Amino acid sequence: MTDAISTGLLSDISVQEKYAAEPKSKELGQDVFLELMVTQMRNQNPLDPQDNSEFVAQLAQFSSVEGLDKLNNTMGDFVGSFESSLQSNQALQASAMVGRFVIVNSDTSYLGNEGLIAGTIDVPQTTDDLKVNVYNEEGELVAEELLGAAEAGPMSFAWDGNIEGTQLPAGNYRFEAYANFGGDDVQLNTALSHNVDSVTVGANGAVSLNVAGVGPVSISSVREIL
């Protein structure tokens, strides 16, 4: 009797030490589920045993949950791989834009020797009087371009820095666009051409273009590629 008690006690201690040593998991794995099922069968009322269909239903339910869990993990890996591939593709496409000109929202751009500044003016409504004033780095008005009538929407224009046969020097120039609505001059938003110097991939995988005179901009901010 003493030996049986001692053996049982040592067995309990051994089991306790085993579970204490094993890392605890919050997930109900297949081994734990089967162990619970066996324990449930051992401790059921012998006069009123549980129906086999109930065990089958529990097993089927567990298998279904386990299958969904594996499917979620597989889809998670697939989505992660797809996002990584998409980011790599965006970085590759962005690198091909280095050295090219893009149009982004700004009011200042650089005019190179025998260069050209392209731009877009956002016209909110139809006007008969649209104009662009151009200022040099000293803030002096060097050109006034009368564009005339324009319909609502983006209005494209180009400026080469040539004033009555005289080429203005290379440098940064500021543009102010105005439209007359009901007798009032309203300043409009402009987007100008800039050179893409380099590409940066952030820690989160976001790709940005380093645009001369503007700084880093997202690819989605590019309005046009020239």
Rank of each mutant, 00 (worst) to 15 (best):
G202H: 13
A170D: 12
Y178K: 15
S81I: 05
F62P: 04
V132F: 01
D51W: 01
N180G: 05
V134Y: 03
Q90S: 12
A179N: 08
Q93E: 10
A158F: 10
A57H: 02
N189V: 03
E83V: 09
D48H: 13
T127F: 02
I121A: 07
L28A: 13
I225E: 11
Q90M: 05
N45H: 07
A20L: 09
V38N: 10
L71F: 01
L92A: 15
T120Y: 06
T74P: 06
V132H: 01
A177G: 01
T127K: 02
E164G: 09
M75T: 03
G99M: 03
N105A: 15
G182F: 00
K18W: 09
L9Q: 12
V132A: 07
L34K: 14
T2H: 10
T39H: 15
V199G: 02
G215Y: 02
P23D: 13
N180P: 04
N89F: 10
P49Y: 00
T74N: 12
I121G: 09
S14W: 04
F62Y: 09
T190S: 12
S208G: 06
S11P: 04
L47A: 08
V186A: 14
K70T: 01
D160P: 01
L192M: 08
F33C: 06
P23W: 08
V56S: 13
S64G: 07
A94I: 03
L28T: 04
N105L: 12
L130V: 01
E27P: 10
N105E: 15
Y19P: 10
E224G: 08
D31C: 02
N210R: 02
N204M: 12
E151I: 00
V134Q: 09
L116C: 14
Y173P: 07
L168I: 06
V186I: 14
T126A: 13
